[in-house]
Nucleic acid binder design. Sequence first.
DNA 1: GTCTATAAAGGGATAGAC
DNA 2: GTCTATCCCTTTATAGAC
Lengths: 203, 203
Amino acid sequence: MGDSQSDIRTKIIAAAQKAIAELGVSNTTLQVIADGAGISKGSLYYYFKTKDSILYSVVDEDFRISRTIMQQYRAGKLDKRQLRAAIIAGLKERLEKKSENRLHLYLAHEAMLGNQELMVSYQAKYADWVKDIAEGFSIAFDVPNSSWTRLLAFFFICTMDGWCMQDLLEISTVPKKDAVRIISAIFSDEKKAEIMKSLMEDK
Amino acid sequence: MGDSQSDIRTKIIAAAQKAIAELGVSNTTLQVIADGAGISKGSLYYYFKTKDSILYSVVDEDFRISRTIMQQYRAGKLDKRQLRAAIIAGLKERLEKKSENRLHLYLAHEAMLGNQELMVSYQAKYADWVKDIAEGFSIAFDVPNSSWTRLLAFFFICTMDGWCMQDLLEISTVPKKDAVRIISAIFSDEKKAEIMKSLMEDK
DNA sequence: GTCTATAAAGGGATAGAC
DNA sequence: GTCTATCCCTTTATAGAC
């Protein structure tokens, strides 16, 4: 395993990630991070120049880890039918990862507050997502990958982000199971898939 | 007009609202609020006991003001056709009100961070929204108001929240106009409305 | 009622001993 | 490399003059 140098860096980033997911960016102090990493506040400055540089490392790590379903598909690990199932499974999985959703929203919040560097990172990330998901829809619904699949992908992402938000606010106006079932149906039920197809093909 | 007592209270709340929409909750200091209201920091404490009590007043005011389209419909000010048009117009309008969307997201963020009182407010607010929008869909698409219209309303709200988020992050992976056009089509185009209807009616 | 002055606490960042 | 001590700044909140 790597030298202890980068080992501690990793610990710091992990501690920061955990703290941000729990407390938000602005409530995550250097003291909290240091405690979480098991070192002193002063030692943090041996590994990172500023608090912001820790934040950026957390974002980089967060983006690096996320492996998309489409990457698996392109790697030939999934056929078309498995892809459709994987989309639904991926959706369910994401809703369950509360801590990751928190982190995502809190970092996005920080970007919205005027952090240009973060904002640019997110713009690139969302562009990737739309591209990937549009490709997935094109295959799953057997329609050409056009501006329509991109639009559907955009709405899909919006829905997921808003859903996560309500989930974190512990809003349960509708049963989560029912909502998942609808999405499931659209992707796995042939009849509903046909309807979606007609919505997309129809000018 | 009311006495100057509540007049200044109103000024403080307005200043706080503006500051929060621009800077977020945690960057909105008492100094910023006092400056915005044209009084001194010390005077704030004559009107509000704590910083949090100002925050709660901002939320109350924010929720009090929002008039829904359905309230107009119920008051007999809109017929069914106007309602459908009003839904689209309302959607466009909301996307344009960046400052209000900021405020909404920033306050929601504050609630997520563990502010129970705020969270309960939001839960009630979202429950109202789902109820209203489901009723609107039931009328607009001419289907019974059931758990399906509630689910559609839920997804609609999720989409709008996620859309607003991307808007504030200045993410433009798809042209905003195209996205609005799709929603428009679903509500105003008879053929697409039929498709939506079949999606909802079909078990 | 409104202000200024100030207390009390906590944040990021640095210096320097070890 | 890691720590403690400390600096400097900002924040909320209070005290007390006017």
